[in-house]
Simulated scan of single mutants.
Amino acid sequence: MKALMQTAYGEPSQVLKVLTVPLPAFDESSDELLLSVKAVSVNPLDYLLVRGALKFVWAEQMPTGVGVDLSAVVVKAGKRSGYKEGDEVIGCMAMQARGSIAEYCVISAQYTALKPKSLSHEEASCLPVVGLTAIEAFRRHAGPKDTAFIPAGLGGVGQIALQLAKPYAGFKHTLTTVSTSKVEVLKQHIRDVDVVIDYKKVDPATAIPAGSCDFVLEQFGKAPSYVRYMRKPARGSTGGKPSIISIATPPNAEKAAQGWGVSLGFHIRVLLNLWDAWTRFWIPGWIHYDSFFAVANSEDLKALADLADQGKLKPVIDKVFPMDQAVEALALAESKPAGKVVIRISD
Rank of each mutant, 00 (worst) to 15 (best):
G170A: 15
K2G: 02
K166L: 09
P204Q: 05
V216T: 01
A210D: 15
R235F: 10
W278H: 09
S29T: 15
S41T: 12
I107Y: 01
K115G: 06
G259F: 08
T112G: 07
A329W: 03
D27K: 11
S120L: 05
V196N: 13
V227C: 04
E85G: 09
P233K: 08
P224T: 04
S120V: 07
L274G: 10
P63R: 07
L186P: 00
T206H: 11
R269I: 04
M1A: 09
K312Y: 14
G86H: 08
K255H: 13
G65A: 03
P251V: 04
H121F: 01
E60T: 15
K17N: 14
V195L: 14
G285Q: 05
R269A: 06
H173K: 15
W260G: 06
I160K: 08
M93T: 07
E136M: 02
K79N: 07
L272H: 12
R140Q: 00
S120E: 03
A8C: 14
A165P: 00
T20N: 04
F292E: 00
A326G: 11
E11K: 08
D198R: 02
G153T: 10
S13R: 09
L164V: 09
P167T: 02
E122K: 05
G78H: 12
S41P: 01
I268A: 12
L162V: 03
F293H: 09
L304T: 00
L186S: 05
V73G: 07
L175G: 08
V157G: 10
D309N: 14
H173G: 05
V157N: 09
V75G: 13
V66C: 03
A338L: 03
D214V: 13
V74N: 10
G236L: 15
G82D: 10
A329S: 11
K145H: 00
A113K: 08
I317T: 14
R139Q: 01
F292T: 00
R235V: 06
Y168F: 15
A72R: 01
T176Y: 10
H173Q: 11
K2E: 13
K312W: 11
E334K: 10
R98A: 12
V57Y: 14
A8R: 12
D318M: 15
V341E: 04
K17C: 12
V202W: 08
T238C: 07
S237D: 13
L274F: 08
A59M: 10
K319T: 14
A77T: 03
E218G: 01
Q325W: 02
V42A: 03
